Simulated assay, not measured.
Amino acid sequence: METDCTSGDAAVNTQLPKGTRLLHIGPHKTGTTSIQGALFGAREKLPAYGVEFPATSRHPMQAVQAACSCGGMIGDSAPTERHWRQLVEQVAATGRRTAVVSSEFFADAPDDATAARVVEQLGGDRVHVLVTLRPLARIMPSQWQQYVQNGLRMGYEDWLEHMLRKAPYEKPNPSFWRRHRHDRLVERWVRVAGADRVTVVVVDDRDREGLMRTFETLLGLPAGLLRPVPDTANRSLTLAETEMLRNLNREFRGNGLPDELYSKLIRNGAVMHMKNACSPSSQDVRIPTPGWAVEAAAGIGAEMAERIAGTGVRVIGDPALLSAAPKPSAAPAAEARMAPEVAAQALYGALAAVAAVPDRPATRGVHQTSSRELVKVLGHRCLRRLGRR
């Protein structure tokens, strides 16, 4: 294993050959959104240095979901092969320039054959795979609340029990260990691309812009070209916000409402507006991870770091960080509560999603309809209106 341990502004002599297809596969919660935003924000400056960011959006999520057969988010339209073919064509059009493709959903590739197809269609031996990693103990609370944003109803400690203590560790989210058993993730892509065309970057959370400086070095860009782009829509939820949404998920599922309605009203309505309109304060309680889970995650991290070392890939950063055990979160001194203004913004976001179309009179009186049936009727009616919009 070739290791470059860096910190701060230390230079790393790791520039990739011109014409490389740099394939950043995440996984989730390892700085992917920050990098994608910075690359997209600098896309007009990159060609001056022989680099292109060929995607037409910050994150070509649908294209990658189609390529990796991992489906879309709950209630969203299914990604198609057309999305993937478009991205492949955009990469091919960059010619001899270096092209960067970044999506954490590449980490969801279910097998070697899928990963091999991705590498071959994006450029074959011109592809260099980049894996960004963070300590598992820091990933788990963030990943849990993300699953809640996609409909999960299980509480955090119960979810940790399932992920860490209940074999085969696949319920309720089988994607978690496919993404975050990082040693197996690296091994999968090494089998496809070869160890000499895979680089692992260990993200140091103490250096907020260190990952951007690493990308600049890999791509031969001047220091400081990639800058953070504020993205409130991607912030993590607080404990109170997540618990509010988790309880809403229970009601939603319990009443049998359609997934499409969840996508439009909840995830892309209430939650999205709440995240954009409200920023957590120092008084908001973050999601606390119990000590036993932190220790278990640190142990798994140490095992993963050892196995990654055995693959022969180049590692940038300090592999010891992967087994770091951050101080366990203390239990909240008081019950986590969501501020009234935050709740109001969430409610407004849902209402705004269906406000444009007036009601039609029902053929049967409301008083003649059971509450459960009424909820279903209203849900489907809202969905039809959103479709017409």
Rank of each mutant, 00 (worst) to 15 (best):
Ser263Gln: 09
Met154Tyr: 02
Ser69Cys: 12
His59Gly: 15
Arg138Ala: 15
Ala297Gly: 04
Ser102Thr: 01
Leu136Gly: 09
Gly269Lys: 00
Pro280Gln: 01
Val51His: 00
Met274Gly: 01
Tyr348Pro: 01
Val88Lys: 02
Ser282Gln: 09
Asp108Ala: 12
Cys68Trp: 07
Leu347His: 06
Val127Gln: 11
Lys166Ile: 15
Asp112Gln: 15
Val200Ala: 03
Pro328Asn: 05
Ser77Trp: 14
Ala115Trp: 02
Pro60Lys: 06
Ser236Pro: 12
Val285Gln: 12
Gln86Asn: 08
Arg337Tyr: 06
Ala293Cys: 06
Val198His: 02
Arg165His: 11
Glu243Gly: 01
Arg188Met: 13
Arg191Cys: 07
Ala116Ile: 11
Gln90Asn: 11
Lys166Arg: 15
Leu219Glu: 02
Arg381Ala: 13
Val315Phe: 11
Phe105Leu: 08
Glu241Gly: 02
Pro135Gly: 00
Asp318Thr: 05
Arg188Trp: 12
Val198Asp: 06
Gln146Asn: 07
Val119Leu: 09
Ala92Met: 05
Val88Ala: 13
Thr94Ile: 09
Val148Arg: 03
Gly75Ser: 04
Cys382Val: 03
Lys45Glu: 14
Glu216Leu: 05
Arg85Glu: 13
Thr14His: 10
Ala324Met: 10
Arg246Glu: 07
Lys29Val: 08
Cys278Pro: 03
Thr132Trp: 07
Trp159Pro: 04
Pro361Cys: 04
Tyr156Ala: 07
Ser279Lys: 12
Glu216Lys: 01
Gly224Thr: 01
Arg360Lys: 13
Asp112Ala: 15
Thr3Arg: 14
Glu157Ala: 09
Val100Gly: 01
Met338Ser: 04
Leu248Ile: 06
Gly71Gln: 05
Ala10Trp: 07
Asn13Tyr: 11
Ala309Arg: 12
His180Val: 14
Thr232Asn: 11
Val200Met: 02
Arg184Met: 15
Leu22Trp: 11
Leu46Gln: 01
Ala296Cys: 10
Arg191Thr: 10
Ala193Ser: 06
Pro168Glu: 14
Asn150Trp: 05
Trp84Tyr: 12
Arg253Ile: 14
Val12Ser: 07
Ala331Pro: 03
Pro328Cys: 02
Ala78Asn: 10
Val192Met: 09
Ile266Trp: 00
Ala223Ile: 10
Ser281Cys: 06
Ser69Pro: 07
Met212Asp: 09
Glu251Phe: 13
Ala223Val: 08
Gly41Asn: 05
Gly71Arg: 05
Lys45Ala: 11
Ala309Gln: 14
